[in-house]
Amino acid sequence: MADVLLEGCDLTKHYPIKKGFLQRTVGWVRAVDGISFTIERGKTLSLVGESGAGKTTTAKAVLLQEKLTSGSILFEGRDLRKFSRSQLAREYRPSLGSVQQNPWSSMNPRMRVRDIVAEPLVVNTKKSKGQIRSRVVELLEQVGLRADHVDQYPHEFSGGQRQRIAVARALALNPSLVILDEPVSALDVSIRAQIMNLLKDLQTKSNLSYLVIAHNLATVRYMSHTVAIMYLGQIVEYGGAEELFKRPLHPYTKALISASLLRLPEDEEKGRKQIILSGEMPSPLNPPPGCRFHTRCTEAASTCSQEAPPLRKVGANHYVACLRF
């Protein structure tokens, strides 16, 4: 059995919609609706989907920034619900790092690089000033920056360098899991490869696990070991990256892949069709009955609107939620 670091079991997050003077609950936004996943030590799990699919809510739940409606997160086999507050602060939180999408807004513009990178250490450890200083330098060098960058402010750096600073900050506490929320999508194309390669190198070197949130499938394929395709709060397909991209089974996965493949003018001339989904993702406030994807599905049958498909095992490490399969 693989070395599992973190496991999400049947995670659900419903936000109440309140209305009127008495703030009565009139409905629920089903942001995340019963998803499960495992993150192995030293491996990358990516959550893929369009905006509103529930990726970010899931990541926030792992980061303790969102209280789950139901479901549990197991960290090294232990249920987080059984952790006390101080246990969470001492044992769980320092094992996490987080890198956000936008390196222009993820840093306090009034703080110097030294303080930005040191913040997790100051807040969570009792290290001396000297220890913190040398650790900051060590971290900056690890991400390819120089020690003399410490006294500069974020605005003095380019987007790529800022994202390196963000990675250094995420690694400050020697975490075992780093949550990467669209880590390269705000960067220039020629810089993305630098950051992706840096992240992969750091993973190999420190045996880090990554939880990646992304919408760009090619990036996901390059970065991940396991991929979960999300649609409207649920996982529709889950599996090893190689298997999933070579043999996509869910119509939504197929459409996403088709939309992301390089398509040259001659493909059109040769009549190679691109799958173009009609319509848009319905509101999570009122998801369609049955399979949530049936309103846009190119292969939907009449049963799809009545019966919700369970996520079924179809291969060694390949699961799909589709009645047609």
Partner: peptide, 17 residues
């Protein structure tokens, strides 16, 4: 609502800080 305050919260920074 800024990202850097969210980041501070993720790190575990106290509200006063």
């Amino acid at each position: 609502e800024t990202d850097f305050v969210a980041q501070a919260r993720i790190i575990g920074t106290s509200p006063v800080r």
